[in-house]
Design a protein around this nucleic acid. Structure first.
Lengths: 332, 332
DNA sequence: ATGAAAGCGCTAACAC
DNA sequence: GTGTTAGCGCTTTCAT
């Protein structure tokens, strides 16, 4: 059963309050008392019961991270980093893996309400509609997603420079003399997808590229839609010479399908992705790398700050992306 | 702040004990009372405070899963499945991502002791030495790892049929008329590595293959050691015609390096992996697929059983693997 | 079948 | 600077 604060108090001939103070506000305790208590705590290897602490504050150390698929490498990396930071700050990260099913989202939300989570990190892994049921007093930070504007919620958001990153990617293709540059977009309505598409359009407009809406294929961020995208572009009269994909997974699908059709990349077709999460030993994909570690770090620290100090930093934080030149683009 | 059990009790003109009974042992309550209480609970949308419950039992709903790297696809998948099951049973899965650092392992263990976890799932993500510090009364289930035999602990273990699976793989190569079959082993001392190697040796012996210890390269389960392995085998006078890798990641390294050296797979070299976790659009790796979902499921249910009913099933459970024929092996 | 009351281990307001 | 005491919200004896 282990020691309790009372055992320590008795052994030290002080009250439990004093022991508690030694642990939580040591400067309120006389040095002599403090040292004695610390000594005994150490000797007895006393560890305060976290549950009892939680009951007082009515808050656990659990932080929820909403995502829609653990296997998606972007989220896997995000989990890895967020988990590390949470632990370093004495929190536990609970992964709410919703698979985009409303039912699971709801179950998770109820669970959170019941278990008194300390705070939440949201990505696209939960719909705004379900989110309405969350007690508005919960500390929340968003990563790369907005909340429906018709809600009265106003959470801080950490986001990558999607539009700017997409511009970098497409402009890079322009410098390689590409003109017929196509785009495989992500799921419409999803912030990152829309912004990256907008970045693409910015450059199309800036350089007055000879492309139209037929050069935009609407994907859904999954590998399969990259495969379909390639087949779609092949069906056009004029095949693009370069394709900018809204994420690496779709670029991977495109690349794989190209290979199997004996289309030479980058000889016949240049491909560029977005995310920088593919660690592939066959191809080095040219891509816009987001610093997922940095996003996780900024988001977690913001959340912990919100939880512990209740202070809010700037509402929106942008994390810059970086063009990584791999082997999948070629100068014309 | 939300409703408490007391609010409900007052609204129903019963005691808190009765409300508690309605929730936890309903058959002890008169039907009429029960219905009234349930009615009010529903109307008021009362949710019992989990922390308070935990304080009584002195146990949280947290289950720890020890791994050494979230990004390793085997673990990613394991996390995904374990997380789902945990949640379905009203537990939270906490990922203890140790990166094989003793310091982190120790920190996690202390955290678990402090926070009164319900139970632990262990993989190779924690060393036996550190484990000694774990309170022996904790419910624990192991996946594909044993505990040092000099310890007095005796945890149930869920394991894949490593040796049998390896035999299937190598025997398959034999049926393809390969004789010079090499092996890239995993980290020595790690159960899965040793067993898979043993399976390889079984077949070597069974068919009296003309290979010796030079055909065994000692790897460490990481992609890089697959790359090094290929270079090593190339340096031999007689290159093997087929290589069995102790996991997919190393097979991937081998495959990637082969490609970049213009070695045709499977034309010049057949490669076979183990795990079945690579979902690659370039190559379909021939491999022995483990049912990670099944392992996770069996392990979690065993653990939950241990936690809630304190009953133990058979000490060791073997989950069969299955040979998946892809595109990386060829008949000689 | 139900209620009263003690207690889980800790914190914090108040008193000295 | 330290002790007393009343909770935090629930479960669980022990009465009735």
């Amino acid at each position: 059963m282990g020691m309790t604060i009372r055992d320590i108090a008795e052994m030290c001939d002080v009250s439990t309050a004093t022991v508690s103070r030694v642990l939580n506000s040591p400067d309120q305790v006389a040095e002599k008392t403090r040292e004695k208590v610390l000594q005994v705590i150490k000797e007895e290897n006393y560890i305060p019961n976290q549950i009892a602490k939680n009951l007082n504050s009515n808050i656990t150390n659990n932080i929820a991270l909403f995502i829609f698929d653990i296997m998606n490498p972007f989220f896997t990396k995000l989990i890895k980093e967020a988990n590390r930071i949470a632990f370093d700050w004495n929190y536990s990260l609970i992964i709410c893996d919703t698979e985009n099913e409303k039912e699971r989202e709801l179950k998770y939300l109820n669970y959170i309400n019941k278990s008194k989570f300390a705070g939440l990190i949201l990505t696209e892994g939960i719909s705004g509609e379900i989110l309405e049921k969350l007690d508005p007093s919960y500390p929340v930070v968003c990563i790369d997603r907005y909340i429906n504007s018709n809600s009265n919620r106003n959470y801080p958001i950490i986001t990558s420079e999607n539009r700017e990153g997409a511009r970098k990617a497409v402009e890079y293709l322009v410098t390689l003399n590409h003109k017929k540059i196509a785009h495989v977009s992500g799921t419409p309505g999803v912030k990152t997808a829309d912004e990256r598409k907008q970045g693409y359009l910015d450059i199309v407009e800036k350089y007055e590229l000879p492309v139209d809406e037929r050069y935009i294929y609407t994907g859904d961020f999954r590998t399969e839609s990259g495969i379909k995208a390639l087949e779609y572009f092949l069906s056009l009269e004029e095949m693009p010479t370069a394709i900018f994909c809204a994420n690496d997974l779709m670029a991977k699908g495109l690349l794989g399908r190209s290979m199997s059709l004996n289309i030479n990349v980058p000889g016949d077709l240049s491909i560029i992705g977005f995310d920088g999460i593919l660690n592939n030993s066959y191809y080095k994909l040219t891509t816009v790398k987001q610093s997922i570690a940095q996003m996780a770090s900024v988001a977690m620290k913001e959340l912990i700050n919100l939880i512990e100090k209740k202070t809010v930093s700037p509402k929106e934080r942008k994390i810059p992306g970086k063009l990584i030149v791999g082997d999948t683009c070629q100068k014309l």
